[in-house]
Design a protein around this nucleic acid. Structure first.
Lengths: 202, 202
DNA sequence: ACAATATATTGAGGCTACCTCGACTTAGCA
DNA sequence: TGCTAAGTCGAGGTAGCCTCAATATATTGT
């Protein structure tokens, strides 16, 4: 069996069919139950044994990664497009919103993602890298125009977007939107007059 | 047995002893393993049966809340003290840092806390309310001095602090500090010239 | 058409954890 | 000292993880 998560070499017809079914059920389950959804139930609903699931997707992360592939590609493409947007600040904000929205598609996803950065072998690691890289170009453009302080890195922005997505899982939508806005605004340079701990004027 | 989480009415001596042991072991376990630590192991290490644990603490949240009580009181007191700090901005930042630090004492704690706000019957609900209220006074003081935008509520700040604590669990410490700073800075009013999506000057 | 073989699938089985509840034990009082 | 309310116990049902030896089947070459 193909223990990699993408069907690279030609798979046997039955294997491919099962792979596809598993992926479809996983998507539903993750959306409904979050990233901790029961793998046994996913297998059951795909009409396949638990062993088969593990054959195709050796870890939960591998399965998650597979369900995420397309939307991540889309996000990277969106970043590319937004590079031509007239306002660098607006472009950055839009991408951040779109990304945060994707990351709260499944409950627990933000945690799985940010967590994957600790381990290069985690199947989600690459995905995070790609998204960070895509964001970096938008961030730099905004920086050139004075909207982003020097010490803020693309990794920081990625973490913030994840944090916002995480928060969104737990608070009302409307508050979630606000929190993301605060975080992105927090990347701006701090005006000199309030940087030091002295009391400001009126 | 006393199914409430605090020993209110006089408990039998053995019950009180077990209660205390459970609390002590829970603290260790949560610190070492996070808020999802095995309750059976906590009971085992306390030299008590699982049934006894459930007798004293009917839910994981109740046990968590009990282990948190003291440090939450301390945070509330700290907020009080900081109200007399000469710089409202510095006071706010300090309290936010202290709070975020407490909230990342146990892996998973920020999630348990923010999550508890969805359900008033969650034993952690009160704790969150208290912390939010404590932060509110600091926030208002900073707002009066122009450091905080109008639409940012105490609940927002509480959520941001939690988000920072969550992020801290997953990224290097040094990055974690920076993220919290970004979030708090994000509460500042947005300068007029960059509020609209127009490109700013040099 | 048919083996031969590489490729997949199966599911029981060993773990760990959650939580409940009826049977048992004991501290503390009169 | 014995009674009883208060507390403790832990087996047992449920569920999820993951593995691996046995079994099944798609494909390929003849």
């Amino acid at each position: 069996m193909n223990a990699a998560n993408t069907p690279q070499r030609r798979m046997r017809a039955d294997a491919r069919r099962n792979y596809e079914r598993l992926l479809a059920e996983a998507e539903v389950a993750f959306r409904e139950r979050g990233t901790e959804a029961s793998l046994e139930e996913i297998a059951r609903r795909a009409g396949v044994s638990i062993g088969t699931l593990y054959g195709h997707f050796p870890t939960r992360q591998a399965l998650l990664e597979a369900t995420l592939h397309e939307s991540i590609d889309r996000l990277v493409a969106t970043a590319e497009e937004l590079l031509t947007h007239p306002s660098p600040g607006e472009a950055l904000a839009r991408w951040a919103r779109a990304t945060a929205a994707h990351m709260s598609a499944y409950r627990g996803l933000a945690t799985s993602l940010l967590n994957s950065l600790k381990d290069e072998n985690n199947p989600l690691y690459r995905a995070c890298q790609q998204m960070t890289a895509a964001g970096e170009r938008l961030l730099d453009r905004a920086r050139r125009v004075g909207l982003v302080r020097t010490e803020a890195s693309a990794a920081d922005m990625f973490a913030l977007i994840n944090a916002a997505a995480w928060a969104r899982e737990q608070v009302p939508d409307e508050q979630g939107d606000r929190l993301l806005a605060f975080m992105i605004d927090g990347l701006r340079p701090v005006p000199a007059e309030i940087r030091s701990p002295a009391a400001p004027g009126p």
